[in-house]
Measured scan of single mutants.
Amino acid sequence: VTTYKLVINGKTLKGETTTKAVDAETSEKAFKQYANDNGVDGVWTYDDATKTFTVTEMV
């Protein structure tokens, strides 16, 4: 189990959250659901070296 981080650069929501998951794909699903639940829709990137997802909304 690995800890993954999500950085949110939204128009109205900014911040970070973490989750523990067995792999990046599992954490990505959880993070995308979290973003969707909070009305964040944007461009996703992933940095495997830091286990960090970033979602950026276009303004």
Rank of each mutant, 00 (worst) to 15 (best):
T17F: 15
K11P: 09
V22Y: 12
D47L: 03
G10D: 02
T26A: 13
K11C: 15
E16I: 14
K14N: 09
V7C: 08
V22A: 12
D47P: 00
L6V: 03
A35D: 01
T19A: 09
K5Q: 05
G39L: 06
D48W: 06
V43W: 10
K32I: 08
K32W: 06
L13Y: 14
A35L: 11
E28I: 10
T19I: 15
F53I: 02
T50R: 05
N36F: 15
E57Y: 07
D23E: 03
V40D: 00
T19W: 11
E16P: 04
K51R: 10
D23M: 03
T12N: 12
V43Q: 09
V40I: 15
N9F: 12
D48A: 13
K5C: 09
G42M: 02
K14T: 10
D47V: 04
D48C: 05
V59M: 12
E16R: 07
M58I: 14
K14F: 10
Y34F: 12
A49I: 11
D23K: 04
D47Q: 03
K51M: 06
G39N: 09
K32Q: 06
T26M: 10
G42C: 02
Y46S: 00
A35R: 01
K51C: 04
D37N: 09
T56E: 06
T12E: 09
V7H: 05
N36H: 15
T56R: 04
F53T: 00
M58C: 13
K51A: 05
L13N: 08
D37C: 11
E57H: 05
I8M: 07
G15T: 14
D47R: 02
D23Q: 03
K29C: 06
G39D: 06
D23T: 05
K14A: 07
T3D: 09
A35T: 07
A35Q: 01
V7K: 06
T3A: 05
V7D: 02
L13Q: 08
T26P: 01
Y4D: 04
N38Y: 13
K20Y: 12
D23A: 04
T19Y: 15
L6P: 03
G10H: 08
F53Q: 01
G39P: 01
K5H: 12
T17D: 03
D47S: 05
N36D: 11
D41H: 13
T12V: 11
L6W: 02
V43G: 04
I8T: 02
E25G: 09
K5G: 02
T3K: 08
K51T: 03
D41M: 12
A30I: 15
M58Q: 11
T12L: 11
K29E: 08
T52R: 02
T54K: 04
T19P: 02
E28M: 14
Q33E: 10
V55M: 04
K29N: 07
Y4P: 04
N36M: 15
D41P: 03
V1W: 14
N38V: 15
K29D: 05
V55L: 10
N38G: 04
E57P: 07
W44T: 00
N38Q: 13
D37Q: 11
V55E: 01
A21L: 03
D23P: 01
I8A: 01
K14V: 10
T19S: 07
S27R: 01
E28Y: 15
Y4R: 04
T54C: 05
K14R: 11
W44H: 00
K14W: 10
D23W: 03
L6D: 03
F53W: 13
N9R: 10
V59C: 13
Q33C: 06
L6M: 04
A30E: 12
E25P: 09
W44D: 00
I8F: 06
N38S: 08
D41E: 13
T56K: 05
T54F: 10
E16F: 14
F53Y: 08
N9S: 07
F31Q: 01
T2I: 14
Q33M: 09
L13W: 14
T54W: 08
K32T: 04
L13G: 08
T56P: 00
V7E: 04
T50N: 08
Y4V: 04
G10L: 14
M58T: 12
T45Y: 09
D48K: 08
D41Q: 13
I8D: 01
Y34R: 01
D48Q: 09
N36T: 14
V43S: 07
E57S: 07
T26K: 06
F31H: 00
T12P: 03
V40R: 01
T54E: 05
V22Q: 10
T52Y: 01
S27T: 05
A24Y: 15
I8R: 00
T3V: 13
K32C: 05
T50S: 09
A24R: 15
E25T: 10
A35I: 08
T52N: 01
G15D: 09
K29P: 01
K20T: 14
A49D: 11
K11F: 12
T2R: 10
W44I: 02
V7P: 01
V22P: 13
G42K: 00
D41L: 11
Q33R: 10
V55Q: 00
N9E: 09
T19R: 07
T2A: 10
V22I: 13
Q33D: 08
